[in-house]
C-alpha cells in the first residue's frame, strides 16, 4: 500500500486539461492542434480532446445572429465543463468563452458560462502561468522571428509577454518587435470578407512592418490573423514564413508554413 501513495499523488497532481482545438486549427492546420497536445503533455498535463467539438460560435455572434450563437455556446459549455481546465490555442476563441459567453445568458446558464470562463485559458498564458513548460533540451531556433499580437488575446485575455517569454525560454529567440504591434491585422472574422479592400490594407500595413522588422518568420497565436496575413503575403509574393507560435514551441517544424508549397 505504501508504495502506491507517491504514485497516486503524482497522478493527482497531473492537471486534467481539455483541448479546444478551434475550428480553424481543426480544418486548416491540424499541426497546431498536435503541437498544443505535445506542449500540454510536456507541461505535465493529462490532455483530453473531447469529441463532438466544432467551433465556439463567433461567426454568428459577431455578425449579430445571437440566436444562432446561443445553442452553439450551450453545446460548448456542456462538452467542456467536466474538465479542470480548458486550453485553447487562440486568444480570440478563448476571449469568446471567457468574455462573451457569460454575456449571452442569464440565470443558471450564466453561472455555468462563468464557471467555464474561470477555467479557460489561452495556450501560451496557460503554459507560463498555470503549467509552466520545463526547460528544453534542444538547439535554439535559428531564425529571425517577429510576433503578431492578436487583438482578442491582447485585450480580452491579457496575452502579451507570455509568447515572447516562451519563445526565449524554449527556442532561445528574441522577438524582433513589429512597429505598431497593437494595431489589428484586419482579419476581424467575417469583416475580412465583408470589407476585403479595407481588410487587405490593414494586412498590408502589418506585413510591411513585419518585413521592416527584418524577420523571416512571422508568428502569432491566432490562426484567423495568420491565415489573413499568410494569404495576403502569398498574393503579394512576400518571402515571409507564417506559423502559429505553438508549432515552433513544440519543436522545429518540418512541414511548410501557412500557405507555403510543400517542401
Amino acid at each position: 500500500m505504501d508504495n502506491l501513495k507517491p504514485k497516486r499523488k503524482r497522478t493527482r497532481a497531473r492537471r486534467d486539461v481539455a483541448l479546444m482545438v478551434t475550428c480553424l486549427a481543426d480544418l486548416m492546420r491540424p499541426s497546431v492542434g498536435f503541437a498544443a497536445v505535445r506542449l500540454l503533455e510536456r507541461a505535465g498535463c493529462r490532455v483530453s480532446v473531447p469529441d463532438r467539438q466544432t467551433c465556439c460560435g463567433q461567426p454568428a455572434y459577431n455578425s449579430g445572429d445571437v440566436n444562432a450563437a446561443v445553442p452553439v455556446a450551450q453545446a460548448v459549455i456542456e462538452l467542456f465543463e467536466p474538465y479542470d481546465y480548458v486550453v485553447i490555442p487562440s486568444g480570440s476563441c478563448a476571449g469568446m468563452l471567457c468574455q462573451h459567453y457569460p454575456a449571452l445568458f442569464e440565470g443558471e446558464w450564466r453561472e455555468r458560462a462563468l464557471a467555464l470562463a474561470a477555467k479557460t485559458w489561452e495556450l501560451t498564458r496557460f503554459l507560463t502561468e498555470v503549467a509552466p513548460l520545463p526547460s528544453p533540451k534542444r538547439r535554439p531556433l535559428d531564425a529571425a522571428v517577429t510576433y503578431h499580437d492578436g487583438c482578442a488575446g491582447l485585450r480580452e485575455m491579457e496575452v502579451k509577454q507570455q509568447p515572447r517569454q516562451l519563445l526565449l525560454q524554449q527556442c532561445g529567440v528574441e522577438v524582433k518587435e513589429l512597429a505598431q504591434t497593437e494595431v489589428c491585422c484586419g482579419f476581424g472574422g467575417t469583416f475580412c470578407t465583408k470589407m476585403p479592400a479595407i481588410s487587405s490594407k490593414m494586412a498590408d500595413d502589418k506585413l510591411d512592418n513585419a518585413v521592416a522588422s527584418g524577420a523571416r518568420l512571422l508568428l502569432g497565436g491566432d490562426l484567423g490573423c495568420l491565415l489573413q496575413l499568410a494569404g495576403r503575403a502569398r498574393r503579394r509574393g512576400l518571402e515571409l514564413e507564417v506559423r502559429h507560435v505553438a508549432e515552433v514551441l513544440a519543436g522545429t517544424p518540418t512541414g511548410p508554413g501557412i500557405g507555403d508549397p510543400r517542401r
Partner: peptide, 11 residues
C-alpha cells in the same frame, strides 16, 4: 476572401 488574398491550402 480570394479577391485580395490567396486562400492558404489546408494541411
Amino acid at each position: 476572401w480570394t479577391g485580395t488574398r490567396d486562400f492558404p491550402a489546408p494541411e
